[in-house]
């Protein structure tokens, strides 16, 4: 199964999750997601997701100057984002276990 379709629904949660501990700029987030096993994640999708979460008030951003090249814009999760992450986690857990149950029945 093509995981990119599945990814669309949960990318928000994944991005919030990798920003939970440390702030990160766009490409940082892409790398963390890939390091976490989401190899198929598209750069542009991550950047778009960051913008959406930011516009929804779950992330804040600040710019850090760089000696060479353009400034880097770091994103950090705020309280709203943490609440959303906790909710998504609950939803995901129950959804995954429901689906696991269905799949068990199929296998049986």
């Amino acid at each position: 199964m093509d995981t990119s379709q599945l990814l669309k629904g949960v990318l928000d949660m994944a991005v919030l999750a990798v920003l939970r501990k440390d702030d990160g700029y766009g490409y940082d987030v892409v790398r963390r997601l890939r390091a976490g096993g989401l190899n198929d994640v598209g750069d542009a999708s991550v950047y778009g997701t960051l913008r959406r979460l930011y516009n929804a008030g779950m992330l804040t951003s600040y710019v850090v100057p760089s000696e060479e090249g353009p400034h880097r814009k770091y994103y950090s999760i705020n309280e709203t984002g943490r609440v959303r992450l906790a909710e998504s986690r609950e939803t995901w857990r129950s959804f995954a276990s429901t689906l696991d149950g269905l799949l068990e029945e199929v296998a049986a």
């Binding site: 950047y47 960051l50 913008r51 930011y54 353009p70 880097r72 814009k73």
Partner: peptide, 17 residues
């Protein structure tokens, strides 16, 4: 203003890539 924000991200991205 939204384009400016996006381009800030993308410029850094493309430069690093």
């Amino acid at each position: 203003n939204e384009v400016a924000e996006i381009m800030e991200d993308v410029e850094a991205h493309v430069a690093e890539l």
